[in-house]
């Protein structure tokens, strides 16, 4: 191997080892610390050196031109680094300075049901910025796995997990009696009817999921209990078991519309794994009003550099599969056919 090619490979190996060490270090300092660490100026120098070495390597090793798989792997790595750097904090800063492109890199926006919003609070900033279009939240809703369940635990450590379906009755053995689920509430409130307190499902905004449960003791005494999802409830010394109500969220859905010049130009239900893409930004379901479900919080992310990274991913994958699998399979077929 020629001396300068050997030097390039040696340098490449050193940079790979350095990145292994840095990655392991980054894993110990948590995601936030690692993000800051890998965006520091010395690391920017490292990323630039790695990308430069890859380009120099591609130019120096002419043999790569005859090995398309290996070439694609290396070009793919260059594209991933280039796209990553272009979309990074530093990349956005340079784009603003050099080309006047002032894009929000990453931020959050809260939108109330029925209202439009175009203000985004960028990460690490106190000053809101505006998007060139607005988003209107038609509705926000949570969906749950069905059925929800009631967890019954005795003082002796026995547990039953029973589906919370109204009308169902569950025997808990000779010592504990039976439990019947009478009714489930989305927003339980207590009102007064004929001088007595009476529970009812309040349709106004708010959320207080609960179950009405009838406990029949082995002696035949019947008592009614309310089990709340959000409150543990009171337990008394004489209670034979404790009850808790659980619902598992299956989806968070924000029904959104994009408004540009007072016209609806796009609409999408944003869910986890199903972001909205519009105007160079991606909008993700991030958080919500967990008390009354009146607003949603979206994460807003710029797509700068993203498609360069994706192109790099494709090249890296196809290159690796071609170089390590397919070319051997094809050459075997060739040998067999000749």
């Amino acid at each position: 191997m020629h001396k300068y090619r050997r030097t390039i490979i040696w340098l490449g190996l050193v940079l790979i080892i350095v990145l292994i060490v840095l990655s392991i270090y980054g894993a110990f300092i948590g995601a936030e610390g690692a993000e800051q660490f890998f965006n520091q100026p010395p690391l920017v120098v490292y990323w630039t050196a790695l990308a430069t070495l890859l380009i120099v390597g591609i130019a120096a090793f002419r043999r790569l031109l005859h090995m398309p798989g290996l070439l694609m792997i290396h070009v793919g790595c260059v594209l991933i680094l280039a796209g990553g750097m272009w979309g990074s904090r530093g990349g956005h800063y340079f784009q603003k300075k050099l080309f006047g492109i002032d894009k929000i890199r990453k931020g959050r926006m809260a939108i109330y049901e029925g209202r439009s919003e175009n203000h985004v609070l960028p990460d690490g900033s106190q000053e809101q910025k505006e998007l060139p279009f607005s988003l209107k939240l038609k509705d926000f809703r949570l969906e749950y796995y069905k059925p929800a369940y009631l967890l019954i635990q005795t003082r002796q450590g026995q547990r039953w997990k029973v589906p919370a379906e109204a009308g169902k009755e569950f025997p808990l053995g000779n010592d504990a009696g039976t439990i019947k689920i009478v009714k489930s509430y989305e927003n339980l409130k207590i009102g007064i009817e004929e001088g007595k307190s009476a529970p009812f499902d309040d349709p106004s905004p708010g959320s207080n999921p609960a179950l009405e449960v009838q406990v029949t003791e082995p002696g035949g005494q019947i008592s009614t209990q309310y089990v709340f999802e959000r409150f543990p409830g009171h337990s008394h010394n004489q209670d034979k078991f404790s009850l808790s109500y659980h619902r598992v969220i299956s989806d968070y859905i924000s029904e959104l519309q994009i408004i540009e010049d007072d016209k609806v130009v796009a609409a999408k239900d944003v869910e986890v794994n199903h972001p909205l893409r519009f105007g160079g930004y991606h909008f993700y379901q991030s958080s919500y009003d967990d008390k009354a479900g009146q607003y949603t919080v979206l994460q807003v992310v710029s797509d700068t550099g993203l498609y360069v990274v994706y192109a790099g991913y494709w090249m890296l994958c196809i290159g690796a599969i071609w170089h390590m699998w397919l070319r051997h399979i094809f050459s075997k077929f060739k040998v067999k056919s000749t």
């Binding site: 894993a27 690692a34 993000e35 990553g84 794994n273 994460q299 992310v301």
Partner: peptide, 11 residues
């Protein structure tokens, strides 16, 4: 697709 970042620097 899920979290908004193709690289989250997660451990």
């Amino acid at each position: 697709q899920a979290w908004g970042d193709y690289w989250g620097w997660d451990p």
